[in-house]
Write a protein that binds this DNA or RNA. Structure first.
Length: 873
DNA sequence: ATAGGGTTAG
């Protein structure tokens, strides 16, 4: 089998779009995916001809969008009220957050509304009797003489929109705009129609309304422009929003406070860089528009996306300096920024100060904080806040329930997760796509594939449509579990739904290839995604860097959930490949690219079954990786700790010191500090290098536990691999001192399950040295000593981990009297007395001491001294 | 015109 699959693409969208609209009935009977796809087409019909107003119609009164539509189509079919999730999925957004939020049905309060009481009546009638276009027209006609001006119609269409009655709102708008002759009034109607559509996530329709309004001469107002900007912002189209601001200035209109607030808000939602937003903010100040509380809140939201907690704090003080009051939004957004910046203690402190400012934490505050703690791995703190809010009788809502589901799911505490589901049910909150995604991810990560399947089925039965994140989660879960055939099936479903892959999905696929050592295929997929216009991010690159030197075949193993893909390996691989190709060729030629992905899964499945043996081509790989890192520089993608860990791990897989040095040079390009420490320790330097190392470790300590431990593991492994064992031990003891591996170290027990093999071995030496010193102080050892290796983080065979094997070999090599504990293959035990006897033997101490292959002549003793000092702590 | 939840790298 070829080592590199043919070139492929997974982003080609299926050209389902028909440019002619089918009849109502036909459309309704078609699949949801098809219906939804209509939304992305630009030519949206503005429905059947409206009943003509009594006045003679103006010649240009026909909306442009309506003119573009060839056939009669009803809005009721184009606006299925419950399909909003699909709409989001099709618009290519990265998040469905915007749309999911609409489930809350936040009704816009109509304070200061100038509508008449008859407008309320008209609304009720429209809701109750406006079953289709004609019936709604009847309602509108019957109220026509009683409703006064644009205020009533504005109320009507806005309220219809708030109730999800999209098509009714539009029909009402068209009805009203034709009956109105004053341009300013028409403009008001247009801007509220645009903002209503924006709130519903129907950007294309909003744009059509805007365009029509401009064409017909009442659309060029600050309000319509602002409304359109906001509509784009809500759906995450920040570039469009900025473009509208520019075109607004071009057409001679001066943006006002609301316009700028909407633009800044759009930037926050669309992930525009803080620097760029500050430019817009400065432009606003320059033309004399004074910022207000909402401006600052929106700026804070920009920080929160990027976890720019320091910038957020500065903005907060700037607000205070300017005499702008804070509100609950300010605090919640600030807390979010600080939480995302990983500063939970600071966040907690600020939250505690809220009551003294007369702003009481609400359910949003709590969900922000609980999620922040959960992401930082501080489960106890997360749960204690949850109990606090219950105690304070802060009501739970959908988001909080979903936060809990995600929390328990991640921890594998499924009993609690199920209780949350029950509670949701009892208070009448139906599980949505977010709930399901959280559960699928939770069960998937624990390898509970039966439950994953059951949940996915339940989801379909409950008619909750999977979205990009659902597919993404499932593909990742199955790939990680080695269930490539399952992954392939999900990928097909995903393509059938007509969705476009995003950077996350690509990164998952690339990671799957990388984990199997297929670096070249991974790189070709990287090229592909770039060609598709999807910008890889640091995660994508980290996977590829980490792939360096991985063996090209993976373990042949049985999944923990008992689902084994080898059930299918009765048919030969080549046969399966042919099947896959033929099937797809039959569907459409354009699916060729997808076929390649599907083949890729086939190849992974085959590799996993042990069919393909590949030679490692180290030379080629190193060039590949170097090229990739260069590319990362060119694209100005900033590396992070994971990048550093990946490079260090790649070094550990090098066969020669020279290769490792080449990789380390890449590290130098990124970051001199990390390079200095890694290189220094590798060369056996101490002194100033150790001082630098301390400050590096201080920074790493800011990260969550698993990120920090991964870095320590990578650095230690690299040092151990190249014979700097004393240096490795120094790093490990530093990690232990800083509690990187959670209570791994007690006198009676050493828990290595979170450590890499190098780190674990260095740790065993240190631990035994410590026990040795206990014995020599004449103190009593515990009756039983155990060393836990766990089952190995990545091994699927019980007790058969590389770590376990490494530790077993180490102990045997030292002659340490530890035995495998029978029922638990990952545990080595010795009685205290037997261990003590061994430690007292004359040669033992020398065996336990570690040495560096390379040492700096100037500080030869430093390592040993600080080892002893660290042990004393 | 403003706040919180679900996916990726270790």
């Amino acid at each position: 089998m070829a080592s590199t699959p043919p070139h492929c693409s997974i982003t080609a969208t299926k050209p389902y779009q028909t440019h002619q609209y089918p009849q109502n009935q036909r459309l309704k009977s078609q699949r949801q995916t098809r219906q939804s796809n209509q939304w992305t087409t630009r030519h949206v019909s503005l429905s059947k001809p409206l009943p003509l107003p009594p006045q003679p119609p103006r010649t240009a009164a026909k909306p442009a969008a309506a003119a573009a539509a060839p056939g009669p189509t009803s809005f009721s079919s184009l606006c299925p009220p419950s399909k909003s999730d699909l709409v989001a999925a099709f618009s290519g957004r990265r998040s469905t957050r915007f749309v999911s939020k609409m489930h809350f049905g936040r009704p816009k309060t109509t304070v200061g509304s100038r509508h008449s009481s008859l407008a309320e009546e008209a609304l009720q009638s429209a809701i109750r009797f406006g079953k289709d276009d004609l019936a709604l027209d009847d309602v509108l006609l019957s109220f026509e003489s009683k409703l006064c001006g644009s205020d009533d119609y504005t109320f009507l269409l806005r309220e219809l929109g708030n109730r999800g009655e999209c098509w009714k709102a539009i029909r009402c708008f068209e009805f009203a705009v034709r009956r109105e002759r004053r341009r300013t009034e028409q403009g008001k109607l247009a801007s509220s129609m645009i903002s209503t559509l924006g709130r519903l996530g129907k950007v294309e329709l909003a744009k059509n309304v805007f365009q029509t309004a401009v064409n017909e001469g009442y659309g060029k107002t600050v309000y319509t422009y602002s409304a359109l900007i906001s509509a784009y912002g809500r759906s995450g189209y920040c570039d469009e929003a900025i473009r509208v601001l520019e075109s607004m200035k071009d057409s001679g209109l001066k943006p006002n406070l609301v316009t700028y607030n909407a633009v800044i808000d759009a930037c926050g939602k669309g992930g525009v860089e803080f620097k760029k937003v500050v430019e817009i903010f400065n432009e606003m100040l320059k033309i004399g528009v004074q910022p207000d509380r909402i401006t600052y809140n929106s700026l804070l939201a920009v920080c929160s996306r990027g976890g720019l907690w320091e910038a957020a704090r500065n903005l907060f003080s700037e607000m205070v300096d300017r005499g702008i009051d804070q509100d609950i939004y300010t605090y919640n957004t600030l807390l979010d920024a600080i939480s995302k910046g990983g500063q939970m203690d600071l966040a907690y402190q600020i939250m505690s100060e809220m009551p003294s400012k007369n702003i009481l934490p609400n359910v949003v505050t709590y969900s922000t904080m609980i999620d922040g703690y959960a992401k930082a791995g501080r489960l106890e703190d997360a749960l204690s806040l949850f109990h606090e809010m219950k105690f304070l009788a802060v009501g739970l809502d959908r988001v909080l329930y979903n936060t809990l589901l995600s929390l328990y799911g991640k921890l594998g505490r499924f009993a609690e997760a199920l209780n949350v589901c029950k509670e949701m049910e009892s208070v009448g909150i139906v599980k949505d796509v977010v709930s399901y995604n959280a559960l699928l991810g939770g069960y998937g990560k624990q390898g509970k594939y039966d439950q994953v399947k059951a949940l996915y089925n339940e989801m379909k039965e409950e008619r909750v449509s999977p979205n990009l994140l659902t597919y993404s989660t499932l593909i990742d879960v199955y790939s990680k579990g080695g269930l490539y055939v399952e992954a392939m099936k999900v990928f097909r479903e995903f393509k059938q739904a007509g969705l476009k892959a995003d950077v996350v999905l690509y990164s998952e696929l690339i990671n799957a290839l990388c984990k199997s050592g297929l670096v070249e295929s991974a790189v070709s997929l990287l090229d592909e995604m770039t060609k598709e216009g999807i910008r890889p991010n640091v995660v994508t690159y980290n996977s590829i860097i980490d792939a360096f030197g991985r063996p090209a075949t993976t373990e042949c193993a049985v999944g923990a959930g008992g689902i084994v893909l080898h059930n299918e390996s009765s048919s030969s691989i080549s046969e399966r490949d042919v099947d896959i190709s033929e099937e797809n060729v039959q569907i459409q030629v354009r699916d060729m690219e997808d076929t390649r992905i599907i083949k890729m899964f086939g190849q992974l499945a085959a590799d996993k079954a042990g069919y393909a043996e590949k030679d490692r081509k180290v030379r080629q790989e190193i060039l590949c990786i170097l090229g990739v890192v260069q590319k990362m520089h060119e694209l100005d993608i900033k590396p992070n700790v994971v990048t550093f860990s990946a490079i260090l791990n790649a070094c550990s897989r090098c066969n020669s010191f020279e290769d490792a040095s080449m990789l380390l040079e890449e590290l130098r390009l990124f970051d001199n500090q990390v390079y200095g420490v890694a290189h220094g320790l590798l060369m056996g330097y101490r002194g100033s290098v150790w001082v630098k190392a301390q400050s590096l470790f201080d920074e790493v300590k800011q990260m969550d536990c698993s990120t920090a431990s991964a870095f320590y593991n990578a650095l230690t492994d690299m040092l151990w691999h190249f014979g700097q064992k004393q240096g490795a031990q120094l790093v490990v003891l530093e990690g232990k001192r800083r509690n990187v591996w959670e209570n791994a170290w007690e006198n009676s027990q050493l828990d290595l399950h979170l450590m890499s093999s190098g780190a674990a071995r260095a740790m065993v030496h240190a631990w035994l040295l410590n026990i040795h010193s206990i014995v020599y102080k004449g103190q009593q050892l515990p009756n039983l000593l155990s060393i836990l290796t766990g089952w190995g983080k990545h091994s699927k065979v019980v007790g058969e981990s590389a770590l376990r094997r490494a530790i077993e070999a180490l102990l045997t090599g030292m002659g340490a009297p530890f035995q495998v504990a029978k029922p638990n293959k990952g545990r080595f035990i010795s009685t205290g007395s037997v261990a003590a006897a061994w430690l007292k033997e004359s040669g033992t101490l020398e065996v336990l001491k570690l040495h560096d292959d390379r040492a700096d002549p100037n500080s030869a003793n430093f390592g040993q001294i600080s080892n002893l000092r660290a042990l004393a702590l």
